[in-house]
Design a protein around this nucleic acid. Structure first.
Lengths: 225, 225
DNA sequence: GGGGTATTTTGTGTATACATTTGGGGAGTG
DNA sequence: CACTCCCCAAATGTATACACAAAATACCCC
C-alpha cells in the first residue's frame, strides 16, 4: 500500500477515535517521523484530511484537528435530515424489496438480541452501516453518496461525545426496521416519515445524553483536566 | 501565491470552461511543464481536483477529467432539490429581511433589463450568485455550505452543455425574485415552494434545451468530430 | 529591569533525485 | 497471422535537499 494511504488512514482513524483530540497541531516533520514516512506522502494525507474537514490549515504552520462539539449536531442534522429523506425516497423506487425485507428482519432480531444483552453496540452500528450501504446501492446517486459520506464522518466523531444507552439502541433498531420495511413495501411516504421520526429521535437522544456529560471536549480539557 | 494554488485554479478553470474536455488525461510531468511548476505542487492540485470530483485517478497513470453528460443532471437535481429547499427554509428563519427585499427588487429590474435586451447572461448569473451567497450567509451552516459548493461546481460544468435562451432567463429572474420575496417575508412554506418550482423549471429547461444540441460531449467528439 | 531588534532556529513550499511500477512494443512461437 | 511473453522506457510514488518565512530567543540599548 502507498505510504500516503497508510498515513491518511492512520491519522483519520486516530482523529475519529479521539486519540488526536481537537486542537492538536499536526506538524509535518513531527508526524512524518512518528509514522516513519517522508514529508511528501504525509502532506498528501494532511491535504485529504483537510478536504474532508477533519483538519484545517493552521496559519502556515501545519494543520490542526478541527474542533467538535454537540453545538454542531443541529447543523449536521439540518443537512442530514433532507439528505437521508431524499435517499430513502429514491431508494424506495429502485430498491430490490428482498434485500430490505431481510434487513428489516435482521433489525428485528438485533432488537431481540439487544434486549437479551447479547448484541454489542459495535455490532449494531455495523448493521446500521449495512442498511446505509443498501440504501446507497439502491439510490446509485454519486452526488448524494458523496454528500452523505462527508456527513457520516462528522457524525461518527460527534457521536463519540455522547454515550449510548441500551434503551435507545432498542428503539433505534425498531425505527430502522420500520424504515427497511417501508422501503421493502415500496412506500416512499412511509419510508420518509419513518426516517424523519428516526432522525428526530436520534438527535433528541444525542443532545439529551450529552447534558449528563461534559458539553464539549477540547484538547485543553484532556491535557489539563 | 503558492504554486499549488495557481495550478489548482488554472486547472479547475480550464476543466469548468471545457478547455480540458472530459476524458483528458492529466499527466503529472506534462502538466507540470505546461504550468511551469514542479511536480510536487501540481500533485497537490490534482489531488484537490480529484477530491472535488472534477478528475478521477486513472489506474495508476495520472488523472482523467471526469465525464459529464446531461444524464447526470437528474442525479444532481435529486440532491440539489432537498438541499436548496433546506437552505431556503433555514434562511427564512434567520435572514435579514432587508437584504432579501433588495435582492428581490434587483431580480425584478434584471427581469426588465433582460426584456430590453440590456442584461447579459453573465451578469445575471452573477446576481444569482449573490442570492446564493446571501442565503448561505443567513443559513450559516458549514455542512450545508460544503455540500452545496460541491454541487454547484458540477452544475456549472453540466450547464455548459446546454444553451440558455432569453425567455428562460426572464422566467428564472421572476422565480428568483419570488424566492427572495418569500424569504424577506419570512414565509418558509412559500420560500420552499418557490424553490421547488424554480428547480423543477430549471431542470426541465436544461433537459429540453439539450435535445436540440448533442446529448453528450466527450473528448472523442471534440478530437474527431 | 524592560523593551526592541537582530539572530537563530524551526517549519513549510518547492525542486530534484531515486525507486518502483506499469504499460507498451518487439520478438518469438503456435 | 494472431497471441503471448519479456524487456525497456516512461511515469508515478517517495525521499531528500534547498530556499524562504515566521516564530522564538537572546542580546543590546535605553
Amino acid at each position: 500500500m502507498r505510504a500516503s494511504d497508510i498515513a491518511y488512514r492512520s491519522l483519520r482513524a486516530d482523529i475519529i477515535d479521539g486519540k488526536l483530540p481537537p486542537g492538536t497541531v499536526l506538524a509535518e516533520v513531527e508526524q512524518a517521523a512518528r509514522l516513519g514516512i517522508s514529508r511528501t506522502p504525509l502532506r498528501e494525507a494532511l491535504s485529504r484530511l483537510s478536504s474532508e474537514g477533519l483538519t484545517t490549515p493552521h496559519q502556515g504552520r501545519g494543520v490542526v484537528v478541527t474542533d467538535i462539539s454537540l453545538d454542531q449536531l443541529e447543523d449536521l442534522f439540518a443537512v442530514r435530515l433532507p439528505l437521508e429523506c431524499a435517499a430513502v425516497e429514491l431508494a424506495t423506487a429502485r430498491a430490490d424489496p428482498e434485500i430490505f425485507t431481510e434487513l428489516a428482519e435482521r433489525f428485528a432480531s438485533a432488537s431481540r438480541l439487544i434486549d437479551a444483552g447479547g448484541t454489542t453496540q459495535h455490532g449494531y452500528y455495523a448493521l446500521v452501516g449495512e442498511l446505509d450501504a443498501a440504501i446507497d446501492l439502491a439510490v446509485a446517486n454519486p452526488y448524494l453518496l458523496q454528500a452523505q459520506r462527508q456527513l457520516r464522518t462528522h457524525l461518527v466523531r460527534i457521536r463519540r461525545l455522547s454515550h449510548d444507552n441500551p434503551d435507545r439502541l432498542l428503539t433505534s433498531a425498531a425505527e430502522h426496521a420500520q424504515i427497511a420495511c417501508a422501503i421493502a413495501a415500496r412506500d416512499p411516504r412511509l419510508a420518509v416519515a419513518a426516517t424523519q421520526v428516526h432522525l428526530h429521535n436520534s438527535l433528541r437522544h444525542l443532545l439529551a445524553s450529552a447534558q449528563h456529560s461534559r458539553p464539549s471536549v477540547s484538547r485543553e480539557d484532556i491535557l489539563h483536566g
